[in-house]
Design a protein around this nucleic acid. Structure first.
Lengths: 128, 128
DNA sequence: ATGAATGCAAACTCTTTGCACATTG
DNA sequence: CAATGTGCAAAGAGTTTGCATTCAT
């Protein structure tokens, strides 16, 4: 059978993913790991992330720029409010919206799975 | 100044996009157009789509495989409920969510601008 | 020992861009 | 006419893969 081996690389990727807030790209993770001294390869990061996603220990989604972003599962589910001027992001936890999303999906005969919500605007600082 | 010119290429892309059901990638459109005899270039399709998206005459989103998908869109502001299995999409108009989005942005000191909401799930047909 | 995992670099796919030429207004 | 749009091909960005080597079991 498939005997998964435990390597420090996989642990490093998993840990770095867990430390990150929100979504991170494979390349970001690779950068972070190297900055912490790991001589890990980019391809390995991609492979480790694919494994984690397959084992459902990580969520993945596509960013607007075409990157695949990953997030450790088990974190509180939240969304982002992003300043289109300076790029600042605020995390939004919104139980009401989760409920709404599920209700909408069901009303159309869908089995709710996931959703992406991103709000854009101009933050207080940039308004001045 | 910048005077947009009308070319048969832009019309062709717009028309092909309008004819398509659901979302299509730029490459798909290019294929379709060529199959219909248009000697249009791929880069031109990308440029035309970027224009349409900017003029808000087209919606765009990222597919799971990393492609950017486009779809002609009417005037009404709406979001999508997408089947992760067959790709079927349902348009959702949700006034309540617009209100919520603006309220959240304001509560964080942001001036509301826009937002993206995508719901994913499995549709009735694919459930069986 | 033995084969799965890694690292490197080449290959791939999708998208963007530079530049000469055709076209529009 | 002036300059915007197009087409081509080369360049970029992100991701995957082939292969020899390393390493967990």
């Amino acid at each position: 059978m498939t005997a998964k081996r435990q390597t420090w690389q996989k642990d490093a990727v998993k840990h770095a993913l867990g430390q990150s807030t929100g979504f991170v790209s494979a390349q970001d993770l690779h950068q972070i790991l190297k900055q912490h001294g790991s001589p890990i390869g980019l391809a390995t990061v991609y492979r480790a992330l694919a494994d984690l996603a397959q084992q459902e220990q990580a969520d993945s989604l596509q960013s607007a720029s075409g990157e695949t972003l990953f997030r450790a599962c088990g974190q509180t589910h939240h969304h982002h409010l992003i300043c289109t001027d300076c790029g600042a992001t605020v995390e939004i936890g919104a139980a009401e919206i989760e409920v709404w999303a599920n209700a909408v999906a069901k009303s159309h005969g869908f089995t709710p799975a996931s959703h992406t919500i991103e709000l854009f605007g101009i933050c207080g600082n940039c308004k001045h």
